[in-house]
């Protein structure tokens, strides 16, 4: 069944890569411009009526964000993951809030955590989890969590800091000469 769906899908849309993760889970990669059309087709004609999730992966070394739309078919109990690569410098993607009501929340979170814009999605510019966030979107790979915490939070005065390696060596092998 999944093979028939894939055959119809490859006829209609320019799919660049097909990866079969397991018998009921397939990932396909396609250009940004066809993705929403393909998702809409899968929802209306192939029975993939359940939007499982919308996730983003930051491939900073390639300068891209990968968006993954996972759809589920309740009749066949199969999943399909639509992978779309978008430019990291201009992270804009078409919104799917008209297809599923809960997509709005995913898009709002992606805007906040990755800075990917979905023009037209309701409340897209409102903060979702982080109120008054001033820094770059925190789920991006170039956001330095250690630097941020050192700049934002200050250790309690008088607190001792131990280097874990040294501390354990002194505690466990105090007589042994350091190598």
């Amino acid at each position: 069944m999944m093979k028939d769906i894939l055959k119809r899908l490859t006829e209609k849309f320019p799919i660049s890569e097909i990866e079969e993760q397991r018998a009921n889970m397939i990932f396909v990669t396609m250009p940004k411009i066809n993705a929403v059309q393909c998702i809409s087709y899968l929802k209306q004609f192939e029975g993939f009526t359940h939007l499982v999730m919308l996730a983003a992966v930051d491939y900073i070394e390639d300068g891209i964000f990968q968006l993954t739309y996972i759809l589920h078919n309740y009749e066949l109990h199969t999943d399909i993951g639509i992978r779309v690569q978008i430019d990291r410098k201009q992270p804009v993607m078409e919104s799917i809030h008209t297809l599923w009501a809960q997509a709005r929340t995913y898009q709002q979170e992606l805007k906040e955590m990755f800075g990917i814009d979905f023009p037209g999605s309701p409340d897209i510019d409102e903060p979702f989890l982080l109120e008054g966030w001033q820094n770059i979107p925190p789920m991006r790979k170039d956001f330095d969590t250690l630097k941020y915490s050192q700049e934002t939070f200050f250790p309690r005065p008088g607190r001792k800091h131990y280097d874990p390696q040294k501390y354990m060596k002194e505690k466990l092998y105090p007589d042994k000469e350091p190598e």
């Binding site: 499982v52 999730m53 992966v57 009501a101 929340t105 995913y106």
Partner: peptide, 14 residues
């Protein structure tokens, strides 16, 4: 990347 899909994500909001 690890993303968690919890059912409350849709139930509690939309």
């Amino acid at each position: 990347r690890v993303q968690v899909r919890g059912p409350s994500y849709t139930h509690a909001i939309a």
